[in-house]
Simulated scan of single mutants.
Amino acid sequence: MTTTALDRIDIKILNELQQNASLTNVELASRVNLSPSPCLARVRTLEKLGVIDRRIAVLDPAVLGIGVTAFIQVKLERQAQPSLESFTRSIDRLSEVMECYLMTGDSDYLLRVMVSDIDALEDLIVNKLSRITGVSSIRSNLALKRISHKTVLPIDANRPVQVKSCSSASRRLDRPAKQRFDASSQAQIDGGMNLETSRIFDHGTARL
């Protein structure tokens, strides 16, 4: 693994693409004061280094009817490596999970999920998350309103950045096929604002 220094022009390119990834090479070159050919070479180098992971479209969830955001704390029965890996694979199958973090503190994982409504959130918790092997408790809180949301990383063009290059293939995870879940349990909704589900597993039998 090698280390490469990004200069001010590289960082300007990254900041422009973070704001608008649909810029043509000619438009990008003009914004960073380069001619098109060296600008394209720099972009390709940034892609090869893995600094530019991929280019995506950011959609408006409200327009698409995805109106509920919740933060869910998950605790596992044990923190052995096989349990952690199994949970990670299961979470990766759930399209509703936008982000998943391994945490310190009382919970093992913190999830940010987005769904269409409360019923969809209940279905996600009761029929999907709680059925993942090894899950011992689930606590969730609804977000009332999004105050700030950013996708642009804070890169300072006045400070050189050192990056460690690695192949894009080594950074990608194989995503398993989506798993089907069946419904059987009920979740408890408190006042329509806070939802908490705790599950205790006893010899393979779940009890709310």
Results as ranks from 00 to 15, higher is better:
residue 135 V to M: 04
residue 30 S to H: 11
residue 182 D to I: 13
residue 37 S to Q: 10
residue 178 K to I: 09
residue 14 L to V: 02
residue 207 R to A: 08
residue 98 M to N: 11
residue 107 S to C: 08
residue 19 Q to N: 15
residue 136 S to V: 11
residue 175 R to Y: 08
residue 34 L to M: 15
residue 167 S to H: 08
residue 162 Q to P: 00
residue 16 E to Y: 06
residue 188 Q to V: 14
residue 44 R to M: 12
residue 88 T to F: 07
residue 95 S to F: 05
residue 195 L to G: 03
residue 15 N to P: 01
residue 91 I to Y: 03
residue 141 N to L: 05
residue 10 D to A: 02
residue 108 D to A: 04
residue 197 T to Q: 11
residue 6 L to Q: 00
residue 80 A to Q: 10
residue 177 A to L: 12
residue 15 N to Q: 04
residue 204 G to L: 03
residue 85 E to H: 07
residue 51 V to N: 00
residue 95 S to L: 07
residue 58 V to P: 04
residue 75 K to H: 09
residue 159 R to A: 09
residue 88 T to H: 10
residue 158 N to I: 05
residue 191 G to D: 05
residue 1 M to K: 10
residue 138 I to V: 15
residue 160 P to G: 06
residue 179 Q to I: 02
residue 30 S to N: 14
residue 105 G to R: 06
residue 94 L to P: 01
residue 59 L to G: 07
residue 171 R to L: 05
residue 114 M to K: 15
residue 18 Q to F: 05
residue 107 S to K: 14
residue 45 T to L: 12
residue 120 A to Q: 13
residue 68 V to F: 07
residue 125 I to L: 14
residue 3 T to L: 02
residue 52 I to E: 00
residue 2 T to R: 10
residue 177 A to D: 07
residue 163 V to A: 00
residue 79 Q to I: 08
residue 28 L to D: 00
residue 117 D to C: 03
residue 104 T to Q: 08
residue 75 K to D: 12
residue 189 I to P: 00
residue 205 T to Y: 08
residue 5 A to V: 14
residue 24 T to H: 07
residue 66 I to W: 13
residue 69 T to A: 09
residue 90 S to C: 05
residue 64 L to E: 11
residue 33 N to R: 13
residue 180 R to C: 06
residue 79 Q to K: 15
residue 40 L to H: 09
residue 157 A to Y: 05
residue 117 D to W: 02
residue 129 L to H: 02
residue 14 L to N: 03
residue 50 G to N: 00
